[in-house]
Amino acid sequence: MPMTRSMLRIALLFLLLCAGVFCVALLAGPGTAAPAASSREKVIIDTDIGDDIDDAFALAAALNDQHLDILGVTAAWGDTGLRVRQLQRLLTIAGRADVPVTQGPATANATPYTQKRWAEGQPAPAAPVPSSVDFILEQARRYPGQVTLISLAPPSTLGALIDRDPAGFAKLKRVVMMGGSVYAGYDDTGYGPLKGPTPEYNIYSDIASAKKLFTSGVPLVVMPLDSTRLKLDEVKRDLLFAAGTPMTDALALMYHQWRHLNGWGQITPTLFDLVPVAYVLDPRLCPTTPLRLVVGDKGETTPAPGPANAQVCLKEDKEGILDLLMNGLLARQ
C-alpha cells in the first residue's frame, strides 16, 4: 500500500520521539547516574571523630553520597594522631581510601576517646601525615571560592588557619559548622518551653579560635544546639545494625564502644554532626536565618545588633535528615 502524507508524518513523528528517548537514555545512563564532577560540591570535613559517636554517622552519610566531592578529611582536636588512624580505617571500609587524611594540631582534651580500641585497629601510618593547615590552604588556593569546609569539631584547626594565612582562609567558599547555642541548650528536649542557651562544646573548647572564626569575614552557616538535638532511636539503630554491610557493622562496633565508655551513661546518640552534612546535601533540611552572633568569654554565642555574620539554622527537619541517613546506608545492602 503506498504511504500517504498522513502516514509519512506519523512515521517521522515516531522517529523523532524514539530519538528523543534514546538521547535521554544516553544522558541518564544505566541505573542512577552519578552527578557530573563539575556539579559536585567540593568539601573538606574537619572532625574530632572518636570521642562522641555523631562524627562517625555524619561521615558515613557524607561518604555514601555521590553529590559530594570530598577533597580530604582532617583530624582535629585532642589526639589527632589516633583520629587519623580511625579516619583511615573508616575510609578504607567505605571504599574511599583514596580520600586524603591529614592531621590538625594536637591539643589537650578531657573528653574520653570512647572509640580508641576501634581506632587502634588501624596500623599507625608508615609515613608522616600531612598537616591539615597546609592541606586546607592548598585546596582553598587551588579552588578559590569553591571549597566548603564542614566543621564538626572545636575550631582549633580553623584558628590555626586564620593565624597562618587569613587571606588564604578567605578563599574558602564557606564554613558550614556544628557549634553554638542561640536560644536552646543541652537541657532542651524540643518539647515544652525553652530552658535557654548554654555554652556548646565545640565553641567553649576553643573560645579563642571561635572568636577568630566568627570575625573572619568568611561566610558561615551555623547549626547550633537549637537545630542539632537529633536522636537516633533504638528502632533506627536496630535497622542499621542488622543490615550487615561493612559500614553499618563498623558503626555498630563504634556505637557499642561509645555506649559503654562515654562516661555520661548515654545509650541513645544525639547526631549533632549529621546536620551540617545534611545541610550541604540539601539546604531545605535546615533553613537558615541571618544573625550576628558574638562569641563570649565563656563560650556563649549571643545574637547581637549589627550586620549578620552567619546564616543560622534554628529549626531542622528531623525526619528528613534521619531519612537521608537511613535511606543512604540501607540502600547499600
Rank of each mutant, 00 (worst) to 15 (best):
M177S: 07
L161V: 13
L213H: 01
I162R: 00
R237K: 13
G180N: 01
I203A: 12
L230E: 06
T248W: 03
L239I: 10
A170M: 07
T228V: 08
A167V: 11
G168L: 04
L161Q: 03
V222E: 01
V175R: 00
R237H: 07
M223S: 05
Q257R: 09
D163N: 12
L225A: 11
L194I: 14
W264P: 05
M178Y: 06
K195N: 14
G265V: 02
L194T: 13
Q257V: 10
G265F: 01
G196E: 03
G217M: 04
G217C: 03
D188V: 11
M247T: 09
M177Q: 10
P224V: 07
Y186W: 13
A250S: 13
G196D: 05
G192T: 10
D188M: 11
R237M: 14
F214W: 14
Y186D: 01
K212I: 01
K211W: 04
L225V: 05
L240W: 03
D233A: 11
K211P: 03
P197S: 13
N202Y: 03
K171C: 04
M178D: 04
H256W: 15
V235F: 06
G168P: 01
L230P: 06
T215M: 01
P199K: 02
S205R: 14
F241P: 08
D226Y: 01
A184D: 10
G263P: 10
K171F: 09
P193M: 00
V221M: 02
G244N: 10
G179N: 04
M178R: 09
L239F: 06
L161I: 10
K212L: 07
M223P: 04
T198M: 15
K236Y: 08
K231F: 10
K171L: 15
Y183P: 02
P246I: 02
L251C: 10
S209P: 05
E200L: 15
G190E: 11
P219D: 00
L213K: 02
Y255T: 03
D187A: 11
E234F: 10
L253E: 15
D165V: 07
P193A: 00
Q257A: 07
